[in-house]
Amino acid sequence: MMHYRREDTDRLFKYIFKAAGLLTIALLGGIFFMLLYNSIALFANIKPLDFFTGSQWNPESLNQKYGIAPLLVSTFLVAIGSMAIAIPLGILTATYLSELAPGRLTQFLKPAIEMLAAIPSVAIGFLGIVLVGPGIAKLFGIQSGLNARNGSILLAVMSLPTIITISEDAIKAVPNTYREASLALGANRWQTIFRVTLPAAMPGLIAAVMLGLGRALGETMTVLMATGNASVIPRGFLDSIRTITATIAIEMGEVPYQTTHYFALFAIAAVLFLFTLFINLVGERYANQRRKFQE
């Protein structure tokens, strides 16, 4: 009797866990197909070529223009700008934490860095308006600090926790024998870190950067508040930009259902989704590679 019951419970729980797992996949698939389905409807009205190469996004004008180029360029400009700040800073911090910092300091620094991830994006956006923006304006001698540079700095701050935490794990996972071998061959600590430990941890570092980049690409509120939202192809970091996420956030609440504009917002969301999916997949691939190497 007892025997039966246990097997039944086991089977029941197996199904419950399986259902939970499948539900996640179904959600992802469902979101993707909804985006795709609505995006395809756009191309009944707009030529795909115009959508991908058009240099203007201006759905409100009489002569409606749905070119994704300015939004895409803006999105990548601000994300890459943020990585230019966050990658060196993040990896150096991670190296310091795992290789050099005394244990007590690490115990204090690690939670502090993780706390950084807990700051709401709207609060960081606010800092961009009242602090970083005016600072940039003063520094570069321009009138307005609401530009791509502002967004980059804020996004760098936001992606730092991701980059630092994952990089640190990757560097820690490099077997001690590597370091010992390097030191035994007469390399000093500096050479060991930069020529042995960090290259050995490279797959993990790439994973960290990719996940950080994914975070920067998908961030909405901060860039919406701090970058000025001018939808033209920016000429540089000191121009106002408007990212895909900000465009969706601004326009989605107002757009009449089932119109070209509505479908266009789905289409740019699908493009963003594909980019972040790709970047996350690359990140995951490298992260898995690291796991193999640990064994």
């Binding site: 203007q56 996004w57 201006n58 409100e60 004008s61 009489l62 300015p70 308006i129 009242v130 005016p134 304006a137 009138q143 307005s144 600090g145 609401l146 919406l224 508040m225 000025g228 939202n229 001018a230 939808s231 033209v232 106002s240 408007r242 601004i250």
Partner: peptide, 26 residues
């Protein structure tokens, strides 16, 4: 008119006033 695409789009009235305070050519 159609606004120039270079026009910045702000979240609200208060933010516009804050921006004009610091921007001498705005």
């Amino acid at each position: 008119i159609d606004f120039t695409p270079y026009a910045k789009q702000m979240n609200g009235n208060a933010q516009i006033i804050e921006a004009i305070k610091t921007d001498h050519s705005g």
